[in-house]
Write a protein that binds this DNA or RNA. Structure first.
Lengths: 128, 128
DNA sequence: CTATATTGATTACAGATGTAAACGCACTGA
DNA sequence: TCAGTGCGTTTACATCTGTAATCAATATAG
């Protein structure tokens, strides 16, 4: 199952809010993205059809909530971009992202810690 | 100008080889991707039409070479995925990529150095 | 010189995507 | 009871993508 660019915008909102009604989605996304309300409704509908969102009738309306994990979608999207754009070479991609990103000092520290732990693991396991 | 997933595969080859003839592209990509030769030809044609590739007649054939910089395309693709998939939050994206990637110790070192320099710059400039 | 092979160009076509209007039903105020 | 209103459903449509066959022109073999 494949989430398109525009659909990601909707999914991000649903993931953030846990559950949300259509009119709220429209309110928060239509203007910001220069979409007509109808466009947002189409997105919701397609995402339901794809199985990315599920609905629960609340009164006569629906509550939308995601039925796929954000992490899973991120993982898939990441692999796609790594494979396609960077030809599977992660390091240049990461270098690029690091260069291009604005990171707070705490985020930098976190990343460094993560790299440290990765390094340790490597040394332990395959002794490179 | 937008390069599709399948087109990235072709572009990656062209970028690697600087310049290349159609039959070579077909040779190197058709089987590996389970594409018919016709499909590869379509890719080349579309990329030329999009302005991503340019052709130079060599004898009666064409030499294909890229007319867009790989870095620029990577930059654009990266921004897209950051904006869409990660909602513009670079740090979680990076954390994810780092976790998911297999990196050599030298690559890890390189990344850490890059983060160091970023940290330094931050401290100098905006004193956060 | 003619038949065949090569290679770029044109055409095809179904499915995904972006973008949105139109439809229908249920409720609400007049 | 009747016209709006709000919301989900259907339908619309141009473009992009993946995938490929066919056409046309040229070169090459016989």
């Amino acid at each position: 199952m494949q989430i398109s660019d525009a659909e990601w915008i909707v999914m991000n909102l649903v993931w953030e809010t846990e559950q949300i009604e259509a009119n709220e989605v429209i309110e928060q996304l239509a203007e910001a993205n220069e979409w007509s309300p109808a466009t947002v409704k189409t997105m919701l509908h397609r995402l339901v059809k794809k199985g990315a969102l599920s609905t629960e009738p609340i009164g006569k309306r629906y509550l939308y909530r995601s039925s796929v994990k954000r992490q899973d979608c991120i993982r898939q999207a990441s692999r796609t971009i790594l494979d396609r754009v960077f030809g599977g070479h992660a390091a240049p991609a990461l270098m690029h992202f690091v260069k291009a990103s604005r990171l707070s000092t705490s985020e930098i520290a976190e990343l460094k810690a993560l790299l440290d732990s990765k390094e340790t693991k490597r040394k332990e396991s395959d002794n490179v």
